[in-house]
Structure formats: C-alpha cells, structure tokens
Design a protein around this nucleic acid. Sequence first.
DNA 1: CAAATTTTTGACCGATTGGACAAACGTTAG
DNA 2: CTAACGTTTGTCCAATCGGTCAAAAATTTG
Lengths: 211, 211
Amino acid sequence: MTIGTDAPRRTRIQQEKRELILEAALEVFSTNGFRGSTIDQIAEAAGMSKPNLLYYFRRKEDIHETLMQRLLDTWLAPLRELDDIGDPLTELRSYIRRKLEMARDFPRESRLFANEILQGAPRIMPLLAGELKTLVDEKATVIKGWMRAGKIAKTDPWHLIFSIWATTQHYADFDVQVRAVLGPNRGGDGRFEDAARFLEQLFLDGLKPKT
Amino acid sequence: MTIGTDAPRRTRIQQEKRELILEAALEVFSTNGFRGSTIDQIAEAAGMSKPNLLYYFRRKEDIHETLMQRLLDTWLAPLRELDDIGDPLTELRSYIRRKLEMARDFPRESRLFANEILQGAPRIMPLLAGELKTLVDEKATVIKGWMRAGKIAKTDPWHLIFSIWATTQHYADFDVQVRAVLGPNRGGDGRFEDAARFLEQLFLDGLKPKT
DNA sequence: CAAATTTTTGACCGATTGGACAAACGTTAG
DNA sequence: CTAACGTTTGTCCAATCGGTCAAAAATTTG
C-alpha cells in the first residue's frame, strides 16, 4: 500500500521515514531550487532508493508541498508573537532579534522560501494574498496604534515589516556573499552578533520618537 | 562558422542576435534559475530554433556567464559612485535611492543575481571574494572616515552596506510577496515611492549623529 | 550572374529526468 | 510455521534535457 499525502500516518516507522525524507529534501531543495533538484538527489541524501522514496511521497511535488506548508507556520511564528501588551520599542527589537536568530538557525528554510518567492511563488501565491496579507495587515494596525500614541516614529508599518524581513533574512539567503565580503576573520561565527548589534542601532535610532 | 564566446563580434547581425538571446535568457534565467531553465525556453523566447541559438552560444553556460559578467558591472556601479567628496548623509541617501531605482528598473537582473547567490554562487564565487570584497572594503574605509569625523553615527560599515542591499533589492527579489501583501491598492506603481520615503526615514534618522 | 560565406533548421543522439510496476524482502499475527 | 501485510528494490519507460551534424536557405562577395 502506498502512503497518501493527506492520509493519516500509520506506524512509527512511516513517520520516521517521512521525516527523514523531508529533512533530506529541505537540504536539496533549498540549495538547488525545485526544478533544479532531482528525486535521486533527495533519495541519496535520505539514504534510500528512489522507488522507496516514491513509496512515501508519490510525487516530487508532494514533498515540496508538505515542506512549504510546515515552513510557513514556523516562519511566521515570530510575527504572530508581536503583541500589543509590552513596550513598543522592546517588542520590535525582540522581533528583529528573533527573526535574525531564525536566519541563523534555519537558513535552509529561509532559502527554500526565498527560492519559491523568487520564481514567482507559483505554489503558495494564494497563501501570500490570503493568510500572510491578513496577518501583516493585522500587525500593521497594531504598529499604527503605537505611532498614533507617540511611542514610535510615524512611518509606513508595511514597509517597516518588509525592511525587517529583508535585513534579517539577508543573512540566510545571501550568506555566501556575506561571508565572502567579510572575509575569513569577520565572516566567522561572530557575524550574527555583529549584525544583531548593527540592526538594533539602525532600527531603534531610526524609530525613536523625536520628542 | 560558429561564434566563440571570447572572439570579437563580426557583423552587426551577430551583435543583434546575441543581444536578442541575452535578453531572452535574462527573462528565463531570472525566473527559473540556471538549472530550471532550458535552452528550448530561451530559444523560444528569442524567437529562434534551438540549434540556431547554439550557433551563437555554444553552451548554455556561456549564455549565463556572459549575462553574469555584464550584470556585475552595472550592478555595482552605484556603489562605485559612492564618493568621499560630498556630504556623507547626502551621499548615502542618494546611494540608497539609486539602488532602489535599480530594483525598480532592473528587477530581472536583481533576481538573476539573487538566484546565483542563493544556490551558493558556484559560478561567481571568485568574483565575490575578489573584486566585490575589495570594493566593499574600500567603501567601508570611506564610511569609517565619515564616522571618525562625526559626520554619521558610529556603526559597522559592512553591515550598513548589507542592510542597504537587503532593503532595496527586496523590492525586486520579493516583488511578488510585496505586491501580494500590499494588496491591489497600495501595491500599485506607487509602492516604490512609499518604499523610498520609508527607507530614507529609516536610514537617515538612524545614522544622524547624536550631537 | 555565380561562387563563397554566413545563417538557419530538421533530424538525431546519449544522458538524465520523474515516475510505474512487479517481484523480492522483512515483519508480525495467528 | 504460515499467511497477511508493510517495506524495499531492480528494472523499465516515455519525456525531456543539452548538444551535434549535415544539409538547406539566405546573404555577401566578386
């Protein structure tokens, strides 16, 4: 019997094998893109034969789809946590920090997402215009409230969110370039701490109310 | 006779055909990546048969290589123009503006470059660690001079350049997402002016010396 | 005009691709 | 042990890939 994509998992072994495949596929897809990756590559990375892999995921697209669905949840978690309860500047600062930590700890997820968007988001466009837009609009309203209350400088909340995404994800998506430019000394493990310090200064001083 | 990559162009027709192919290849490569693009796609986009295209460029890689070489020159031009002569804040502001204009006017070039970096820059790594690093180091020294002179706030020049790259190129590379989130109203042609206003505020207020 | 050269194309090739399938293998329940 | 079920693999297939080649067509040259 083959394992359907939406069918409930049966044995513990199936769960584990599917997880193994997804892990391998994340590695391969994130570095080669969807069309640039082959089932053979994924199967080899997962340590199994191609037909065996196709026993757990019937089509190449199914693997990618499962990967993207899981990705979006964890990827948007930091933004969901952005809340109205704390101090606005502190909230924003910790959002930036969390996003940067995700770029550091989950660079493959970031690159997988970037690959999809770069190519026109053919597989997740509905999610962008639906779930994502709703979430961003909601958070933009929160930020606008902070601006009206004089807690942070008045500016465009949507482009503020874009700039946080751009600057943090840059350290995952363009990691090769960052390391090449920084060189062997400054391009080491400390580059994320340097980035965190810089981004905090850039955003906070730029957002501090004038009064 | 076939046309070599490094051979000097002969007739005007050859120049034009090569240009036609490069234009078509830019379109295809920038949306599908190198491995995701086929010679047939490029040939069709250029309005010619596959063997005809291969008469002008012997290998698929030759097209990509020519494209990347041209790209880097124009792509780094704004940074090269960053000079020590004018007012530092004005210099940085116009650099940001020029980069954003390039993201608006040459989004395909930006995506082509992003695709290459995302996949580990296998074809231009030497350029990154060589020419690019040299240029950035040089400009970082200029910026550091501005900081020592108290003209702009003290921070990390390299990460400052990264953040300018990230925020501006975001509007080319993630254009689909930007438009989806902004929606039909705010996602129209005015989005680049909104972005310009926001980025100016973000960077200038963040870089202004405290005194 | 005709000869020489450049440009274009149809047909083809070997390699790789995503995927199908039946047989073999392993495991577990009776 | 054995029947049933879940798992794995070798083999195969049609489609597509990058690229070749010889010959036709168009253009340039004399």
